[in-house]
Design a protein around this nucleic acid. Structure first.
Length: 353
DNA sequence: AATGCGGGGCA
DNA sequence: TGCCCAGCATT
């Protein structure tokens, strides 16, 4: 049987030629810039990525610069963007490209797939957008568009379904306009064939051949499995001041917010008494000690409920496991996750002595 | 196949 | 408030 999807190629390409947004990585789509943009765009909206992309590529304009960058600089450039393993893997991959490919990003999906941080989607995206190869790139947008156009009630959370969609797309990829086709599918999903909100079928170039639109089932598609519930974690966080500087500590190399800097904190909701005791064990004797506004931060899988204390340290043991950072270092050098925004803002609003 | 991993915008 | 976002690595 003929592939029903063949009919979407021409209208989609025509629509894209007229409706493509102007985006920073589309101006000069070198393999490096396409690669960086695709990593930043993983599970992240275009609007959030734009300023990060500009700054990142200005400071690290090529693969060699990325390969040689200090970790602290990398994390600072990624600060607030989330999923920090992306930038570590990006650099690992850059080093591998310098070592094994003479500094040139490989062209085939198979070679790209072997680089850290590049999976099925990103390999296809780079191969098609940067190198014009007819490789499908199936992200959340594409799954939604295809599920609706074909009125497919398969569960798109399943790997097998993603592969099935990729297979159907591979058969119809236009060889001369692979990059435009990849982007047209995602662009349609991002701007017209919307999730949650009402899809703008009136503006859609595919509505005449969309099976879901014909049935009126756009809002029911795509089908995906339910998400796991978040667990709540109580934490107590300390903004410890000494000589006009704030105490920071580095998070472990693995796990949540790996390698970023944080204000000292501990699991549980500690009372003022328990807090002073806990600080003593770290070599901090508090001169002034006052609670300030509690805060909340929601990760995808955990929710932190934070009790915050402002501590002015009278004396600090040399063995205290902290780094002392002034306003300038906090702004320019150390990457602090958004979860600590409350503490960070309190410190930044203080007068420098 | 399931789980861990950020952060923000929007209905 | 819940959902989703140009997903990947690990188990």
């Amino acid at each position: 049987m003929e592939n029903q999807l063949a009919n979407i190629v021409r209208p989609l390409l025509r629509w894209y030629a007229e409706n493509a947004r102007t985006l920073p990585w589309r101006d000069e789509p070198t393999p490096y810039r396409v690669w960086v943009s695709e990593i930043m765009l993983q599970q992240t909206r275009v609007e959030a990525v734009k300023p990060y992309f500009e700054r990142f590529t200005a400071e690290l304009p090529d693969i060699a610069a990325l390969a040689g960058a200090p970790e602290e600089q990398l994390l600072k450039l990624w600060e607030g963007l989330g999923y920090y393993s992306r930038v570590r893997n990006l650099q690992k991959a850059a080093r591998a490209v310098m070592e094994n490919f003479g500094g040139v990003l490989p062209k085939t999906p198979e070679e790209l797939l072997r680089l850290p941080g590049i999976g099925e989607y990103t390999a296809g995206a780079i191969a098609s957008i940067a190198y014009g190869q007819p490789a499908p790139a199936v992200d959340g947008n594409v799954l939604r568009v295809i599920a609706r156009v074909t009125a497919d009630r398969s569960n798109i959370s399943e790997t097998a379904v993603k592969r099935e969609f990729a297979g159907r797309l591979r058969e119809i990829y236009p060889k001369e306009q692979a990059g435009a086709f990849t982007q047209s599918l995602m662009e349609l999903g991002a701007t017209v064939c919307l999730p949650n909100a009402e899809p703008k079928c009136g503006e859609c170039p595919l509505s005449p051949l969309c099976a879901a639109h014909a049935q009126g089932t756009e809002r029911e598609l795509p089908v995906k499995s339910a998400k796991k519930e978040r667990k709540i974690e109580e934490r107590t966080v300390f903004l410890i001041l000494h000589d006009g500087k704030a105490a920071l500590q580095k998070r472990p190399k693995k796990g949540l917010l790996a390698g970023l800097w944080e204000f000292p904190n501990v699991l549980g909701k500690l009372s003022p008494q328990e807090s002073e005791k806990w600080l003593k064990t770290l070599g901090v004797s508090a001169e002034k000690f006052e609670p300030f506004a509690p805060s909340k931060h929601i990760f995808s899988h955990i929710e932190w409920h934070m009790t915050n204390y402002l501590v002015t340290a009278a004396a600090v043991s040399k063995t205290a496991p902290f780094l002392w950072a002034g306003h300038r270092e906090l702004a320019e050098t150390y990457a602090i996750p958004a979860a600590f925004g409350q503490c960070l803002a309190s410190f930044q609003h203080m007068q420098t002595p």
